[in-house]
Design a protein around this nucleic acid. Structure first.
Lengths: 357, 357
DNA sequence: TATGGACTGGACAACGTTGTCAGAGATGAG
DNA sequence: CTCATCTCTGACAACGTTGTCCAGTCCATA
């Protein structure tokens, strides 16, 4: 079984001793192709790139040599020479999260249309790792960056990069200390709509369980919740609001607190999909039917009983929009950062329509 | 709004006219740093790479110049010189599919420990796109490739690449026409176990709904199903087996066929998660309680009623194992391709334990 | 036959980095 | 004081590609 060494410095080219390029069992270069075809180096380049100025006859000789040697153009060298890398870096929280993987896919699609490849890295909500990843991408001279900011990250570290021309778009959460293109969901409005929906079903005591308030989306959703409550003239009891890490045990504790005591809530607004999943599991375990609206849609939401009422985001839309902003900059657009908010959509499936007990 | 041009050639560096490197608002190079610090070029290189042989005093002058100019080493050039790129390419079917995104995350983690960055691309089950992506990664001189073969792809196109030293690992499905490291789930065994479980619950007429038989995993799972049936001495009626595209409408039709007529099946084995989701939805719509076992676990499987019995794969394990094989090769391991099969696990949650009607 | 133009092919420098090697000072021994 | 040794530094070539530019060839025309 392979071993598992610690990386000295993550994201740095490993320091192999000895002469360079040794580990490749010799890669033929254009020079080799030229020698074999009996033509000049530049002629090979022309053939490879489909440039005009080569006789059909010569071109064919070159082609033959290329396939015979198994030549493949070295894009590293090409990149070095041309200055554009046709690649984009994507830093997000966790590619295994369906929300981010949908988003990633949308970015990939748009990138493909523009001929770009995609580097992806997960920050795990760690600002240091976000920075390492983003800067490693910059060192590779990606043309652009798409970043889901980690909680608490200060993005001024990107200033030299952006000045140097790396197009940068932030998604899901705004950057800190920087003006840049940003694509967000209308988190507060969505949460307000979700909460208002519960109120319209007759609920007066509604709990909010969300992620840490230093995560922008979590804070915004909490704000929307409070606004909706205030708008309806409803008080918010301390025991109803829990914000912090979303590990299932934490959610269970928060849920137990919210649903007990003299001020027991009759409905639940869950700040993200992890909370929703944990809460639904816990309610199932407790065998309690409590009204619930979650932020973020889930694949099986319609198959639960009752179906899960959610405030759905549009991850693919966010990704697509972000990528479009990015490539617009790469195509020459300049100007101050644009901020686009995509609406969230209330999807009623039953759990949010349970009346107060 | 940004425009959406068609890419001339996907994954090729865009042809910008004019002198190269123009779009960067000048990136300082080591030469610039050297000039500013009043030292030689190589000294800057030494400082940047932490090589010995530089006085603390000189090093500090260089550091100052670096931060003043916002210098960042150009890894493209470094790569060109050193020959190793510290990057890995991952080609899979669809990064938005939770199975593949978990897998991707695991590969990313191992890569990070080895100091490598990850290129990701989705083939959408199109062999041509798979090849385009893989070769584009090779042109960037990734050190290694991890590939989920698209249905019907012939992988001999990779021979020159592998000969040239690009470590290659196939996952989820074996390569065609090539000997290489491969990490698979024990698909047939898993499907056999799942089917046998239904049989042990008293079912005699069990349907199999799966993906196209030219997808290796689908074929293997079908084989496992047939083996289990044969082992129990049970016939397999034609109307029970449907293999093909997994769009919901197709699944609905197949399911209707399997559950009707004189040979109506009493239980269902679903060949992958997309089929399972479609089938569960359809059964719900028809309001029928039919025994069901699915291949692949689903996030909410325990929250359905009844809970979903599945044959669970271990995507993270597959990804981790594949990445370990890959880096073992990069660390010098040679020899013929290794083939590792990871077991699938039967998880009983209720839907597979419904008795025959 | 000479001349011009169109076309083809190749020599050369450059992209930004790193490996090699040799030079410049400083230090110590004889 | 000289020579050897050691430490630090920098000049230079090379990685594989592409842009520039010039030289040669071929044909048609004056």
């Amino acid at each position: 079984m392979p071993s598992e060494p610690q990386a000295a410095t993550p994201y740095a080219v490993g320091d192999t001793a000895g002469p360079p390029a040794q580990r490749y069992g010799h890669r033929p270069t254009m020079k080799d192709v030229a020698a074999r075809a009996g033509v000049g180096l530049k002629t090979v380049s022309r053939v490879v790139n489909g440039e005009p100025g080569v006789t059909a006859d010569t071109a064919e000789r070159v082609q033959t040599a290329i396939t015979a040697l198994g030549f493949r153009r070295n894009d590293s060298a090409r990149i070095l020479r041309k200055g554009r890398t046709a690649s984009v870096g994507l830093v997000l929280e966790d590619i295994a999260d369906p929300f981010y993987s949908s988003l990633s896919r949308a970015i990939e699609e748009v990138s493909r249309l523009h001929g770009s490849l995609l580097f992806t890295g997960s920050s795990d909500e760690d600002p240091e790792r976000e920075e390492q990843l983003a800067l490693a991408f910059c060192a590779r001279r990606v043309d652009g960056l798409v970043i889901v900011p980690a909680a608490g990250a200060d993005h001024r570290y990107l200033e030299p990069e952006i000045r140097a021309g790396i197009a940068t778009v932030f998604i899901d959460r705004p950057p800190l200390g920087l003006d840049a293109d940003t694509v967000l969901t209308a988190n507060a409005a969505g949460a307000r709509a979700g909460t208002a929906h519960l109120i319209s079903q007759g609920h007066r005591r509604i709990a909010f369980l969300g992620d840490s308030p230093d995560i922008h989306t979590a804070a915004e959703r909490a704000r929307g919740y409070r606004e909706a409550m205030a708008e309806a003239g409803l008080p918010v009891h301390d025991s109803w609001v829990a914000m912090g890490p979303t590990a299932p045990e934490r959610v269970e504790a928060a849920l137990a607190a919210a649903l007990s005591g003299p001020h027991a809530a009759t409905a639940l607004f869950c700040g993200n999909n992890r909370v929703t999943v944990a809460a639904v599991r816990q309610l199932r375990a407790l065998d309690r039917q409590v009204a619930l609206v979650g932020f973020d849609d889930l694949e099986f939401a319609d198959l639960l009983s009752p179906g899960l009422t959610v405030v759905a985001q549009d991850p693919a839309g966010i990704g697509r929009t972000a990528a479009q902003l990015l490539f617009a900059r790469l195509d020459g657009h300049t100007g101050p950062g644009r901020r686009i908010e995509l609406p969230a959509r209330l999807v009623m499936r039953g759990s949010g329509e349970i009346p107060p007990a």
